[in-house]
Nucleic acid binder design. Sequence first.
DNA 1: ATGGTGGAAGGTCCA
Length: 261
Amino acid sequence: MRIATWNINSVRLRLPQVLKFIEEQGIDIICLQETKTPNEYFPTEEFKKIGMIHQYFRGEKSYNGVAILSKVEFSNEQYIDWCMKNDTRHVSVKLKDGTEIHNFYIPAGGDEPDIVINPKFEHKMSFLNEIKNYFSTNIKNQKILVGDLNIAPLENDVWSHKQLLNVVSHTPLETETLLEIINTGEWADVMREFVPTNQKLYSWWSYRNRNWEISNRGRRLDHVWVSKKLLSSVRSGIIYKETRSWERPSDHVPIIIDIDI
DNA sequence: ATGGTGGAAGGTCCA
């Protein structure tokens, strides 16, 4: 099974790119974030034409929005209303073998890394703490968690650990909380099983840098986690950087894993 | 210290 995750920053604008990616890479299940589209405008038929006939998505106007599109059957479509915001940042499904797939778009958190003065950062931290609680009490089932988690947890997940220590996405409060979620949930960080932690690894490069590839000031904000017991089934993990060079790209690139399930 | 760009909007928020 080939599973991908990608923050595509508008599914309607980026539709040709997503279709091309799915077809060229032979993706079986894709999890999208920032679709930025209410459900009634989601391009259902276009995805069905290329075989992604099983679909579960939740969107809203302009912001957020997540989708799971699949060639293989799934059931138990659910979402959790984290922080009771009634936004569209999570969907989950269950595959035939019982594996749960959770697709997250965690709040970015604004600019100021202070939960007292910045409500967006408070939202991000509350969201993380709810996830931590949820998965610490549900560790029995085998699961896959993917998405734009908006945190680069390790030193080499950012271009400069020292310069980003006080920048939202790499502050100790966020990175420590994310690592706690990994530990208490008995997750494995799939990309770091394939790329050692002493090597730089990014999935996002800001639009605000025209020379993104040369300056290479990236961050690893997108992740694929699997239950530890599933790790031996994972055959490969790739951050597919090519899409960042496509015309009118997303600022995030996809991650692809191959897993024997 | 600041601003740089992009998306959904059709002003302004969010990233």
